[in-house]
Amino acid sequence: MSGPNVKICGLKDADHAIAAARAGADYLGFVFFRKSPRFVTPEAAGEIILDLKQAAFDEGFNMPRIVGLFVDAGEKELSEAAPLLTHFQFHGHESPERCRELGEEFGIEVIKAIPVTDASDIAEAKGYEGAADILLFDAKPPPGARPGGNGATFDWALLNAYDAETPYLVAGGLTPDNVADAVKGQGGRESFLGVDVSSGVETAPGKKDADLIKAFISAAKS
Score class of each variant (00 low, 15 high):
residue 180 A to D: 00
residue 53 K to V: 04
residue 68 G to Y: 10
residue 125 A to W: 08
residue 159 L to F: 12
residue 47 E to I: 10
residue 39 F to V: 07
residue 64 P to M: 00
residue 31 V to C: 08
residue 91 H to C: 01
residue 115 P to I: 09
residue 174 L to H: 02
residue 36 S to M: 06
residue 120 S to E: 07
residue 95 S to N: 04
residue 59 E to H: 13
residue 187 G to S: 15
residue 215 A to L: 04
residue 198 S to R: 06
residue 1 M to F: 15
residue 11 L to M: 08
residue 90 F to G: 13
residue 209 D to C: 05
residue 4 P to R: 05
residue 181 D to P: 04
residue 208 K to G: 10
residue 79 S to P: 07
residue 184 K to E: 15
residue 164 A to R: 12
residue 63 M to A: 11
residue 15 D to H: 15
residue 134 I to W: 14
residue 163 D to Q: 15
residue 10 G to E: 00
residue 218 S to E: 11
residue 150 N to Q: 15
residue 155 D to F: 11
residue 157 A to T: 15
residue 129 E to K: 10
residue 11 L to S: 08
residue 192 F to R: 03
residue 187 G to F: 01
residue 24 G to W: 05
residue 202 E to M: 00
residue 195 V to G: 08
residue 183 V to F: 01
residue 189 R to F: 14
residue 147 P to D: 03
residue 145 A to T: 06
residue 18 I to F: 13
residue 125 A to M: 06
residue 113 A to S: 15
residue 157 A to W: 01
residue 134 I to F: 12
residue 30 F to K: 00
residue 56 A to Y: 11
residue 219 A to R: 08
residue 75 E to P: 13
residue 209 D to H: 09
residue 177 D to A: 13
residue 144 G to S: 07
residue 4 P to Q: 00
residue 124 E to Q: 14
residue 60 G to W: 14
residue 110 V to Q: 10
residue 204 A to M: 01
residue 122 I to V: 14
residue 99 C to V: 09
residue 203 T to H: 08
residue 57 F to E: 14
residue 117 T to H: 13
residue 92 G to N: 02
residue 167 P to A: 10
residue 87 H to T: 05
residue 109 E to N: 15
residue 153 T to Y: 06
residue 16 H to L: 06
residue 41 T to I: 07
residue 32 F to L: 02
residue 109 E to Q: 15
residue 39 F to M: 02
residue 97 E to Y: 08
residue 161 A to C: 11
residue 127 G to K: 13
residue 99 C to P: 10
residue 182 A to L: 03
residue 101 E to L: 05
residue 88 F to M: 05
residue 195 V to C: 07
residue 27 Y to T: 01
residue 49 I to N: 06
residue 65 R to T: 12
residue 132 A to Y: 15
residue 189 R to H: 12
residue 37 P to I: 03
residue 56 A to N: 10
residue 167 P to C: 04
residue 33 F to R: 03
residue 122 I to H: 10
residue 109 E to M: 13
residue 52 L to V: 03
residue 188 G to E: 03
residue 13 D to W: 08
residue 167 P to Y: 02
residue 80 E to L: 13
residue 188 G to P: 08
residue 102 L to M: 09
residue 194 G to Q: 04
residue 210 A to G: 00
residue 73 A to W: 09
residue 151 G to V: 03
residue 64 P to N: 00
residue 92 G to Y: 07
residue 186 Q to K: 02
residue 133 D to E: 09
residue 179 V to I: 08
residue 134 I to K: 12
residue 47 E to Q: 12
residue 51 D to M: 04
residue 176 P to G: 04
residue 187 G to N: 13
residue 82 A to Q: 03
residue 148 G to I: 11
residue 190 E to L: 14
residue 34 R to I: 11
residue 46 G to A: 09
residue 157 A to K: 06
residue 80 E to P: 02
residue 118 D to H: 07
residue 153 T to W: 03
residue 116 V to Y: 02
residue 201 V to R: 06
residue 126 K to A: 11
residue 15 D to C: 03
residue 109 E to A: 14
residue 118 D to W: 04
residue 24 G to H: 11
residue 32 F to E: 01
residue 4 P to Y: 09
residue 216 F to Q: 00
residue 119 A to Q: 02
residue 137 F to S: 11
residue 126 K to W: 05
residue 132 A to S: 13
residue 125 A to Y: 11
residue 70 F to Y: 09
residue 144 G to D: 05
